[in-house]
């Protein structure tokens, strides 16, 4: 029987890539002090932690209502303000409708730098600038939201049909009219779904903002963690998970109805 020949393999490339990956892994594992023995030796510590953090301290639950609400408020403000600010950032960063190359280039880089820093870094910066508390958290999430929505939405704007915007320009419409009537209406549904997506991310993020003093339920989490009150830590985390799931459910159903 004739079997077709196996395609030749590029052994050099394969060996090189594998070697590189293995080297990177060994170097990283060494760098962070990865050790299986450490895991095995500390199983006892792990079981002790689990017995200490279970059952959750349900008596603590009433004290969580207020900071949990604060967390939601922070996420709402961050999403609304950030969502509005993201509109011009996204429009200027869309290659097909941006007024000129220079604006596009500057805005694109601005967007990339915003996106580079994680949410907690912004929270730390704003907590230092405007003082500890929810205002710092709201500002941090505003920046984070601009980064998320502008990136996603500028890509939607780049994929719109250019017929209508070009017609508006051809009949003498200004650039603003072209954006307002030609470009944005085509991508408004994407905008809504990205805004809701950003809201879900913000709810998740606002939970941990308090770890660096930027308000919300994370601040309680941080004090209980520092005091090794793990029964309360578990209670807080469970409450957070339930709240996040409920809010995501609501946001999902809104997204479905609007789509």
């Amino acid at each position: 029987m004739n079997v077709p020949a196996r395609p030749p393999r590029n052994w050099m490339l394969l060996a090189g890539v594998t070697g590189l990956l293995v080297a990177m892994t060994v170097w990283s594992a060494y760098g962070i002090g990865f050790s299986l023995t450490e895991i095995l030796c500390n199983i006892a510590g792990g079981t002790r932690l689990i017995t200490e953090s279970w059952p959750p301290d349900f008596g603590f639950l009433p004290r969580l209502a207020e900071p949990m609400l604060e967390t939601v408020f922070i996420a709402v403000i961050g999403t609304v303000v950030g969502g509005i600010l993201a509109i011009p950032v996204a429009v200027l960063a869309a290659r097909n409708i941006t007024p000129n190359k220079l604006t596009w280039f500057a805005d694109r880089n601005f967007m990339n730098i915003l996106r580079t820093l994680p949410d907690l870094f912004w929270a730390m910066l704003f907590a230092t600038a405007v003082g500890f508390g929810p205002v710092a958290g709201a500002l941090a999430l505003t920046v984070f939201t601009v980064a998320v929505i502008s990136k996603l939405w500028s890509e939607s704007l780049e994929s719109i049909d250019m017929g209508l915007p070009e017609t508006i320009r051809a009949v003498g419409g200004t650039w603003f009219q072209m954006i307002q009537f030609g470009a944005i209406p085509q991508a408004v549904q994407h905008y809504v779904s990205y805004a809701l997506y950003a809201f879900e991310l913000n709810i998740r993020a606002s939970v941990v903002l308090g770890l660096v003093g930027a308000g919300g339920i994370g601040m309680i989490l941080e004090t209980q963690r520092a005091n090794f009150e793990y029964e309360r830590v578990t209670m807080i985390i469970l409450a957070v998970l339930v709240a996040v799931l409920i809010i995501e459910e609501i946001s999902e159903s809104i997204r479905k109805r609007l789509a």
Binding site: I32, G45, L120, R204, V207, L211, L221
Partner: peptide, 24 residues
């Protein structure tokens, strides 16, 4: 997916000690 990594880290730090290993 429901657990943000930083909340998991809160549990891993007491188990394997402060440091990068808990983070990984």
């Amino acid at each position: 997916r429901a657990f943000p990594e930083i909340l998991l880290a809160i549990y891993f730090v007491p188990i394997v000690g402060l440091g990068a290993f808990a983070g990984a």
